[in-house]
Simulated assay, not measured.
Amino acid sequence: MASILISPNKYIQGKGELHHIHEHIGHLGKSFLFIADEFVQGITKNIIENSFAKTDASIVFETFRGECSKQEIERIKKVALENKVEAVVGVGGGKTLDTIKAVGYYTQLPTVVVPTIASTDAPCSALSVIYTEDGVFEEYLILPKNPDIVLVDTQIVANAPARLLAAGIGDALATYVEARACYEANKTPMAGGSITRAAIGLAELCQKILFEDGVKAYLAVQRKTVTKAVENVVEANTYLSGIGFESGGLAAAHAIHNGFTVLEDVHSLLHGEKVAFGTVTQLVLENRSMDEIERMIRMNISVGLPVTLEQMGITENVEEKIWKVAEAACAEGETIHNMPFKVTPDDVYAAILAADSIGKRYVK
């Protein structure tokens, strides 16, 4: 079996780079559709328009309605086709970017993603996570290629709430843990083929950077400043985690995240906040060393990520709810089946409750 590693055609990151967006993407066409929610348009639209002002390219803005659902993808696709644009651009968070990637796939147009937060590893991947209109996980849409260009303005990322960067750290901390499990199980990642040593190396580097610079970056972003630590963590959250999960594989942590989406209790939590708890649960499921579990818990606490079910908002009928999570996490086709051993809902139920008990030891 071939070994496969996939990535975007070009990754661009730096302070103030959104001001140069036409310079970076102008070669893709003469007409562009930009999608962003109302808030993101408020902080980026003028910058984008100024970048295109002295060019012969035309741009159209469409407001993203908030959910990466089949209905929203279809709506944006129609806007792109009606305006006969030559490229599509998503500006915003993970769901905006996943939507534009799906639109690019269905319209066969060049696709640019411009993350304004570093809260997930969605930007670089050839994947869209599809939810229902009510925000419940529905399916993974595997795309034939990664985005053509990923452009990250680190000042805009630093201007966002620090909680979003922390959520990205939570999502990215799962990368090596899951890739290691898939590698040990000799599973096929979303990129196809077998897992390359390069993918494992990138995933491991991602974790190394997060443990070294995660807290420093989190504190810097609280002051809306861009430091070297911020640049490193944004790269880890966005690029290294994106390549690492896609070419290294997903396992229990993300499946447990998907299980948690069936509970209304956690709908206020960000993707990476749920994944962070899922990562600790996977370590428990694998019976990793207490040192590794404790290190992950302490890291989560240091950037405000949840380590107990109570912190996630689950305080009533806990056992009943966690059983529902466990069943959903083990659904047919879920990535939990990439683990090196058979996993049942009973196993997940026990691991979640055990992870909660361990987390409680560190919560003051």
Rank of each mutant, 00 (worst) to 15 (best):
V233Y: 11
A251E: 12
G333Y: 02
G248D: 07
S268N: 14
P345E: 00
Q207K: 14
G29W: 01
Y349A: 00
V152M: 03
I149S: 02
D134V: 01
M290T: 05
V103A: 00
K145R: 14
S125K: 09
E316N: 03
D134Y: 04
A355T: 14
P147D: 11
A172Q: 15
E72N: 10
A174V: 01
A350T: 13
A199R: 10
S302W: 15
H27N: 11
I59M: 09
D291P: 00
C182T: 13
I297D: 01
A255C: 01
S3H: 07
S128D: 03
A252W: 08
A331C: 03
T63G: 05
A236P: 10
Y349K: 08
I322F: 06
A181W: 11
E332W: 01
I43P: 00
A118F: 09
F61V: 08
F211Y: 15
L165F: 06
A255E: 01
R288F: 14
L173E: 01
A203E: 08
C182N: 15
E72D: 05
I142Q: 05
G278C: 13
G92A: 06
V113E: 04
T175P: 05
E138Y: 07
E332R: 11
D346K: 09
M339P: 02
I336G: 08
L151K: 04
A276M: 10
R288Q: 14
V363Y: 02
P110F: 09
F52H: 06
G272A: 13
V230M: 08
F260P: 02
E235S: 08
R180A: 15
F64G: 04
E72R: 07
E204D: 11
E294C: 03
K324M: 10
T55A: 11
R295I: 10
K216R: 15
A162M: 12
P8N: 07
H19S: 01
A355G: 14
A220V: 05
E86A: 06
A328V: 03
T308G: 00
G42A: 13
N338C: 08
M190E: 03
K54P: 00
D356M: 07
N146T: 13
Q282P: 08
H254T: 02
A328K: 07
G66D: 06
A57G: 02
T344D: 05
A217G: 12
A329H: 07
T63N: 14
G201I: 11
V177E: 13
T225C: 03
V318Q: 04
A166N: 00
Y183A: 12
K342W: 05
L143A: 08
L269M: 14
G93T: 07
G278H: 11
I43W: 09
V307H: 02
E235M: 11
